[in-house]
Simulated assay, not measured.
Amino acid sequence: MDACFRLRRVLVELREGDITEVEADAIVNAANSYLKHGGGVALAIVKKGGDIIQRESDEYVARNGPVPEGQVAVTSAGKLKARYVIHAVGPKFGDPLGDEKLFNAFKNSLIKADELGLKSIAFPAISTGVYGYPYERCAEVAVKVLLSVVGELRNIERIIFCLYGAEAYRSFLEVFGRELRGYTSSC
């Protein structure tokens, strides 16, 4: 069952599932700085979207160098339902600046999607896989980003958090329900 929140004119949706199946203008990949998509969300995206995503990622790094933590790069989405993949580089849990870098990864993804004129974007729980961020902490950072940035968005109308597995979904639902309790909406 999806949960939704209305922040100004933006609908924020929580859903459990596979981000490669989401219909959105862009999906966000939880990436590493070299955009090598060898595991987790990144591997699933390349497997489903095709090798073009890895080739474009390699070209991006060859031209621009590694993507710093908290920053993003954009490629096409290959065979995915999305038009773009926004590769957001999150931090490893335990980094003293981790929350700030995670905040920037979410924020810069939203800003880039908005700059591209996109109406919808889907996020995974960035940095919660091999980078070890607890789901609850990731959700708390994501809420802070939403509350600080949503008023600046000109094009984005729908933000989806597509969470892989019941534990991730429950954690995000608990945090979003608590922090956005006055913003609930029907989906």
Rank of each mutant, 00 (worst) to 15 (best):
S76I: 01
G90H: 09
L43Y: 10
N29T: 10
H37Q: 11
V46C: 06
A44K: 08
A44Y: 09
Y84K: 14
V72Y: 05
V46M: 14
D51C: 06
S109G: 11
I111F: 11
A105M: 10
A88N: 06
A24C: 03
G50V: 09
G39E: 10
N64W: 08
D25M: 08
G94Q: 00
S76F: 01
A73I: 04
N108A: 08
L97V: 03
V89C: 07
A88M: 01
K92Y: 14
K47W: 08
I53T: 04
E21W: 02
K47G: 05
V61L: 13
I53K: 02
Q71C: 13
I86F: 06
L43K: 15
N32S: 07
E59G: 12
L35K: 10
T20V: 11
E56V: 01
V85R: 01
D99V: 02
N32A: 13
V89E: 00
N104V: 01
P91I: 09
K47H: 10
D25N: 11
A62D: 10
A42F: 13
A88L: 07
K101R: 09
N108G: 14
A82G: 06
A44E: 04
L80V: 05
V61W: 05
N32D: 13
V22Y: 08
K48F: 06
R55I: 14
Y34I: 06
T20R: 04
N104Q: 14
K81L: 14
Y60N: 04
A31R: 03
V41F: 02
P68I: 01
D95F: 11
I52D: 01
K79L: 14
T75Y: 00
K92M: 13
G94V: 06
I111E: 14
V41N: 10
A77H: 03
A26N: 04
I27D: 03
V85K: 00
D25A: 05
A42I: 08
D25Q: 05
L97P: 00
N32Y: 06
I27R: 06
N108I: 08
K81M: 06
V74P: 00
H87W: 05
H87D: 00
E21T: 12
G38T: 11
V85T: 03
S33M: 11
H37S: 12
V41S: 12
D99A: 15
L35W: 05
V67K: 00
K101S: 09
I111H: 08
T20G: 09
A30S: 15
N32P: 10
G94R: 02
K48N: 04
K36F: 01
V89I: 09
V46R: 13
V28G: 12
K92W: 10
Q54V: 07
K79R: 15
V22A: 13
G50S: 09
D95P: 02
A42R: 13
E56N: 02
A105N: 09
G90T: 08
E21H: 06
E59T: 12
K36D: 03
